[in-house]
Structure formats: C-alpha cells, structure tokens
C-alpha cells in the first residue's frame, strides 16, 4: 500500500515535469506562429499567446515580395540538395574502400580522416585557402568543402563492415569489379544508413549561415534563407528603424507590418520545413546517433 502511494506521488511529479518541459519546448514556436499570423498593429498592443487575435497574412505577403528572400530560399534548397547528395555519395564510396580488408592503405587513410575531427587549421588559413581556390563569392563554397565528412565516413563504414562478406565475394566470383560491386550491391544495401546521413547533412546545410556571412556576403544572388533571417535579427537588434520598419510606419507595402511581425514570419519560414519532416524521420536521426556512437 505504502509502495503504491509513493509510486503515485513519484509518477505525478515526473509527469508534471515532463508536461512542463513539453510546454516550454513548444510554446515559443506556437507563440511566434501566432504573432506571424496576427495583425502587426494589434500585436503591438501585446497579449498574443497561442492564437492570432486579428488574423492577417500581411507579414508573409510582404516577405514573399522581397527578392532577396526568394533568392535565399532557392539557394538554401539548392545547397541542401546538392550538399546532401554529394556528401553521402562520396562518403559512402570512401567508406566502402576503407572497409575493404584487402586494401593496404585502409588504416593510415582512416586515421588521416579521423585526425581532422580533432584538429582544424582555423578560420584565417581556411579563408586564404578559399580565396586562392577562387571559392569566395562563389556558390560552390556551399558544397565543395563538405564533400567528405569524417563523421559520415565512420558511420557508413561501420554499417558496410556489418554487411555479409559473402555477397561481395560472390559478386567477385561472377567477375564484377570493385566499382560495380559498390554501385550495385553495397549502395542499395546501405540505403538505411545513407538516408540517415543524408538527413543529417541536409539539416546542416539548411541551417547554415556562417559561410554566407564570411565568404559570400558581397553577392546578393548567393544569399541564403538563414543568412537573411540573421540580418533581420541583427538590424532590429542594433536599431529599431530597419528598412522594413520604416516602410511599415509609412503604411506602404501590403498593410501593416512591424519588424517584430516580419521576424516572426521569417523565423517560421526558416523553421517550418524541418518541423514538418522531423516527426516522420525522427527514427532515422536516432539510428544515426546510435550508429555513430556519439557525435557532439
């Protein structure tokens, strides 16, 4: 009996904490969603919590008219797709070679990659390297440096090493070359891990903004969505009178918007793609985490 009551108390406290955590996690998103869908002047009065009070799409329609936002969106999608596909393909090829026991350079080359997980040259030498390679103010900087990733290689190699060796041996007897074995046998079998790694790469690419900021700030046509959002954040932070704010006060554009409503709408645009796919793909992410041991 005593056991039962103490269990009940324990469970109540535990569930209370978990529900509290859920609310804290979700509320900021819901609140910003409500602000982005609410009339900006009305929002300024305060009190918006989880539902819009005066529904308005003005913030979104204003945003979609900004040319830099559309460019940023296209570039973000492009780098996400190109970056994820090239990284996963290259890393699986490397992983396959490094998993072949007959390959004599297997250990030294693996170490060469693992070393880069702990030591990097740092920003300045990297910057000058990009400059001499002609990658500054160039779209290719978004995907070329990320072609090989030590983390992805290790995870995929672990997975490939677990595939039955007999399949590869059988294909060899049939006379298939290493490249054909990789393309036609190993790649299809490794799809679960490849999907996981592609997701990780895609998320990283979608969320990246530092490379635009440091390496591509001068070319408007190379902007990315997260970088545009960062700029809005920075400008509203330093001065209350950004270009959009001034427009809103003059009442131009499509109805009232404020820097706050614009930021809210933009945050939604930057976050929603991930929030939409995440619940369905969550188990793949978790697989990646457990396969790779530990990432960060």
């Amino acid at each position: 009996m005593r056991e039962k009551t103490s269990n009940l108390i324990f469970d109540s406290i535990k569930n209370f904490i978990l529900v509290f955590l859920l609310i804290i996690t979700l509320y900021p998103f819901v609140n910003l969603m409500a602000i982005s869908l609410n009339d900006a002047q009305d929002t300024a009065k305060g009190g918006i919590t989880i539902f819009p009070r005066v529904f308005s799409l003005a913030s979104y329609t204003t945003l979609f008219k900004l040319p830099e936002l559309l460019t940023g969106f296209i570039n973000s999608v492009l780098r996400t797709v190109i970056g994820a596909v090239t990284q996963v393909f290259s890393c699986s090829m490397i992983a396959y070679v490094l998993s072949r026991k007959s390959f004599p350079l297997r250990r030294p080359l693996s170490l060469l990659w693992i070393f880069t997980m702990y030591v990097s040259g740092g920003l300045i030498p990297y910057y000058f390297l990009m400059r001499s390679l002609g990658l500054l103010n160039n779209f290719n900087i978004y995907w070329i440096p990320g072609i090989t990733s030590a983390f992805a290689i290790i995870v995929i190699r672990t997975y490939i090493s677990g595939l039955p060796e007999s399949l590869i041996e059988a294909a060899k007897v049939e006379g298939a070359g290493e490249f054909r074995i990789f393309m036609q046998i190993v790649l299809p079998l490794a799809i679960p891990v490849l999907a996981t790694m592609a997701l990780f790469a895609a998320v990283d690419h979608w969320n990246a903004w530092v490379d635009t900021w440091l390496f591509n700030p001068k070319k408007k046509e190379l902007t990315t969505l997260q970088y545009e959002l960062m700029k809005k954040l920075a400008s509203s932070n330093s001065s209350k009178s950004g270009k959009l704010g001034a427009e809103a006060r003059r009442g131009s554009g499509s109805g009232g918007t404020t820097p706050k409503s614009i930021r809210a709408a933009m945050t939604m645009i930057a976050a929603v793609p991930i929030m939409l796919v995440y619940p369905f793909l969550q188990r793949y992410f978790v697989t990646g985490l457990t396969l790779g041991g530990v990432k960060e």
């Binding site: 390959f103 004599p104 880069t116 300045i124 072609i147 290493e178």
Partner: peptide
C-alpha cells in the same frame, strides 16, 4: 587493388586540400 585506389584518390586529394593545407597554414 587499383580500382579501390582509383576510387578513393580524388577524395584523399580533397581531404588534403581542405583539411591539411589549412593546418599547414599555421
């Protein structure tokens, strides 16, 4: 293992350029 070597060489070059050249930049 010529094919394996051929498959991995471009990426080794990539690794050296993007990860080891900056370290040399120290």
């Amino acid at each position: 293992n010529k094919t394996l070597l051929l498959m991995i060489s471009p990426f080794v070059i990539h690794l050296i350029i993007f990860c080891y050249v900056p370290i040399w930049g120290w």
